[in-house]
Nucleic acid binder design. Sequence first.
DNA 1: CGTCAGTTTGACACGAATCAAAGTGAGTGG
DNA 2: CCACTCACTTTGATTCGTGTCAAACTGACG
Lengths: 230, 230
Amino acid sequence: MPGFREFSPAELPFVASFKTGELLADTGATVLAEGVNSAHLYTLLSGWAFRYKTLPDGRRQILNYLLPGDLLGLQGSVIGEMEHSVEALSPLVLCVFQRNRMDELFSNHPGLGFDLTWLAASEERMLDEHLLSLGRRTAMERAAYLIAFLHQRAVSVGLSPTKQLFIPITQQHVADTLGLSIVHTNKTLRKLADRQLIRWLDRSCEVLDVEGLMALADWDGLRENRRPFI
Amino acid sequence: MPGFREFSPAELPFVASFKTGELLADTGATVLAEGVNSAHLYTLLSGWAFRYKTLPDGRRQILNYLLPGDLLGLQGSVIGEMEHSVEALSPLVLCVFQRNRMDELFSNHPGLGFDLTWLAASEERMLDEHLLSLGRRTAMERAAYLIAFLHQRAVSVGLSPTKQLFIPITQQHVADTLGLSIVHTNKTLRKLADRQLIRWLDRSCEVLDVEGLMALADWDGLRENRRPFI
DNA sequence: CGTCAGTTTGACACGAATCAAAGTGAGTGG
DNA sequence: CCACTCACTTTGATTCGTGTCAAACTGACG
């Protein structure tokens, strides 16, 4: 797993004991729900998922996507109740941790505590970028940014080692991420496809030209240094 | 400072030694700039500020606002380079920390390490809420949410102990936060003022009816528990 | 008194939402 | 094997919200 931090020998037994089991989830399953005060914290081992919030009248906003190595439920673990939900985009394998041992983690394994802060700060940077996109980019730019972003994330966690990448989302997901209607999203993605930047198949998106997407969105990509893997 | 965590006796000397000085900034000053790799981490002691990003062509998006108790530059400290800038909305007093002692902080003061994660997770929740707003709320709802949000934050850090609150922002700031043009922002704020929810004066906003704003935005407010004060 | 940043208003243009309808393909049951 | 359904994608017509352009107003400041 390139770019991932190695655990020190002292940390390994703790990580193992902190872990309470594994969880499998099917496509479409809700892993964590808003308002719940779950006893667990998860690491995604494989698969794609997304976090979202909804307004009382049903309008949905996707906040970010989760790939292997990402944490689920840190907010809940640190602050209390979850204020967003998490849903699987593909079959998932999750590693389950005990939330009530957070204090022990910080006390006895400062390296892991730092990693949690690293992950939280990293999520914050992605959200900053998404906010810029929603607030100040046009529909075309937003769509291009989103696909390029997901492509880069997938590459950075070791998916798509060769060249071809298929992102397992529907146009409804794209619409709910970009803050657009599904009809307008379809027309926008069509334009990207006409320009040979992407291809849309069944319920997934194939990335054809990342550089083209990045240029269209005027986006430089994420700077990622080392990355912990809890 | 209601709701703030007390430091343990063991932590106090470290916090004092971690601190290298204080910094004053005037209204409009840039405290941290995108792309810089500053050697410092800051806590805001008093005043209002905001974080923002810009696109190469100048479009600006305000990401969040900073009030006393908030950290500036955590992303830079943990990951490296800053990817956003920070500007003062009022005269500021900042507490300056040495970024290169983060390891020592996590190793010797796990409570403080946890606090950093708490603050990062808390910022993440605010950004989630902003994202929902930009993506799925109408202009009126967004404006109502923003004012109610800033009101609640100000109250939660002990500003506005009586009832009256003046938020030191211009309509341009509101526009750049909500992802709207300045003209439309003006017309939207005018409607809020006509409904007696706010009053706009010179370059600040007086909140008249928080409940009314929250109802309009269909927003419940932030759940805040205890809060660290580094 | 002039300048300048910020606020306000009206007219018009454009991008995105909504409405409507049809096409596609996978999965299901007759 | 063939209808049938259902989720998803596609397209066109129309409406509505927001952006853009233009101009004037206000108050602080030099």
